[in-house]
Nucleic acid binder design. Structure first.
Length: 458
RNA sequence: GGCCUGGUGGCGGAGUGGUGACGCAGCGGACUGCAAAUCCGCGUACCCGAGUUCGAUUCUCGGCCAGGCCUCCA
């Protein structure tokens, strides 16, 4: 039984989908104005594991996963203006880069990737319904959500309206009826992209696109809504309020709210505004994407995780160990294609990936030392567990030699053949000389009963 | 100020009212022409104080420390 921690009820609960034939999940996606950093990738990878797990439990075609793309925003506008191009040029460029980067991290593409600019009709329709139902009002070219219309406002983030007023750090716009009211539609500034609406030309506020997309792509209520824990307030609080008041939310908005913890650089949250970021785009030039994925999942998704070079190095070493086991067991035929029960249990325990990783190592150990039957089972379980979580699907030789082209491989094989001759002749000085030569090429040779294997050191 | 997380061994990181996480690093041994890998074994931990309890790292309260959010910023 899958259990998930729900932010709204603040407890870990059995997961029961509204319809097991159509399990719905929505995760807040990127604003595409620059490259994603590794902190941005944490929810993508964590919820990718959940997506894969749900597909495993309910069937591949039974899970519908939508992740939005915010492609209209001040920063996008600024970048487009700076380059003198239309915003689509910017957003297309960085969306493509984003998808390529996330794919390198082993994340499956969501079923839908709706874009704000292509959801405009639904956004305007939803705002219209909110106005009609007195859950929103127009004022000075803006449309604002009326927080007084929703009695549970603050429930998700655990805040009361009174607290918010008391703690308000920002001047309240004069056109707001209540300080907590938030913008659904606002006028564009000169030169910015603009859409026509019943309330005048302008563009959507921050939160409304997600509610519109969820209505359009998934239908209320959805089973799972995910995102970073900085989105709980105000974004998800507002999203839920407007979504429920729009007329289709009588059965709730999202049945399970999941929020991931942050990646820290040193003691601080990694964030673009602090400038302490490591871009995925750059990291994938330094490490295998699979090692980055492992590093991201080496801590539980709700806990903070400190991002360091050493974390990735350890992740790489862990995968070397597992791939090494698979490489040595190349001759073992898997006797199952199902992950072990413990592996599945670990993931079903609110995505306990560290516990699942421990099971990877246990299986690898059985593969190394077990009887033939146990090995065959362990290999099958290991590969199946890997497939479920997005690991270990590469050819082990390719994992260790991945950076080498054919010419390089031929050269290495030649040297290894020469060295084999020397070893047969017990010409140790010559054998060691060739080992040194290979080491200079960054190649490590491992002698074994069945001949020598090699890997790139990197 | 309000709300919310978290503080576990050299490092990363699970978990539990009373025995084992797991991985990395380290140490000893086996194997090995050398090396690597692998195998066997070893070590060190639960922020502080009080309480509940036969017993607390685990529950409660208080404190200290760190981090996050507190509206047009994703």
């Amino acid at each position: 039984m899958l259990k998930l921690h729900d932010t709204l009820t603040r407890e870990k609960r059995d997961f029961v989908p509204k319809d097991p034939r159509r399990v719905t999940m929505y995760v807040c996606g990127p604003t595409v104005y620059t490259y994603a950093h590794i902190g941005n990738a944490r929810p993508v990878v964590a919820f990718d594991v959940l997506f894969r797990l749900l597909r495993h439990l309910y069937g591949e075609d039974a899970v519908v996963y939508a992740a939005n793309v915010t492609d209209v925003d001040d920063k996008i506008n600024a970048k487009a203006a700076a380059e003198g191009v239309a915003i689509d040029v910017i957003t297309d460029r960085y969306l493509d880069a984003y998808n390529a980067d996330m794919s390198t991290l082993g994340a499956l593409r969501p079923t839908f990737q709706p874009r704000a600019t292509r959801t405009m009709d639904t956004i305007i329709d939803l705002i219209g319904r909110l106005v009609h139902r007195n859950a929103a009002y127009a004022a000075e070219g803006h449309v604002l959500f009326n927080t007084q219309a929703y009695s549970d406002y603050g429930k998700l983030s655990g805040r009361s309206l009174d607290d918010m007023i008391a703690g308000a750090r920002v001047d309240v716009a004069p056109y707001k009826q209540h300080p907590a009211d938030f913008v659904l539609w606002k006028p564009s500034k000169p030169g910015e992209p603009v859409w026509e609406s019943p309330w005048g030309p302008g563009r959507p506020g921050w939160h409304i696109e997600c509610s519109a997309m969820i209505e359009e792509q998934l239908g209320l209520p959805i089973d799972i809504h995910g995102g970073g824990n900085d989105l709980i307030f105000p974004h998800h609080e507002n999203e839920m309020a407007q979504g429920l008041c729009g007329g289709h939310g009588e059965d709730g908005y999202a049945n399970y709210w999941l929020h991931n913890g942050f990646l820290n650089m040193g003691a601080e949250k990694m964030s673009k505004s602090l400038g302490n970021v490591a871009l995925v785009h750059e990291l994938i030039g330094q490490w295998p994407g699979e090692a980055l994925r492992w590093a991201l999942l080496s801590g539980h998704y709700r806990q903070p995780l400190e991002w360091t070079d050493d974390l990735v190095r350890q992740a790489k070493t862990s995968l070397d160990r597992l791939y090494g086991g698979l490489q040595r067991a190349a001759g073992v035929a898997p006797s199952t294609d199902a992950p072990s029960a413990e592996f599945l249990d670990a993931l079903c325990d609110d995505l306990n990936t560290p516990r699942a990783f421990a099971e990877f190592f246990r299986l690898a150990s059985v593969l190394e030392t077990g009887e033939a039957g146990a090995q065959a089972e362990a290999k099958g379980q290991l590969l199946a567990a890997g497939a479920l979580a997005g690991f270990l699907q590469a050819d082990p030789d390719h994992w260790f030699q991945g950076g080498a082209d054919e010419a390089f491989k031929a050269r290495v094989e030649g040297l290894i053949a020469e060295r084999a001759e020397a070893r047969v002749a017990k010409d140790w000085p010559r054998a060691d000389r060739i080992r040194d030569e290979l080491a200079a090429l960054d190649v490590e040779v491992m002698d074994g009963a069945a001949g020598a294997r090699w890997k790139l050191k990197r």
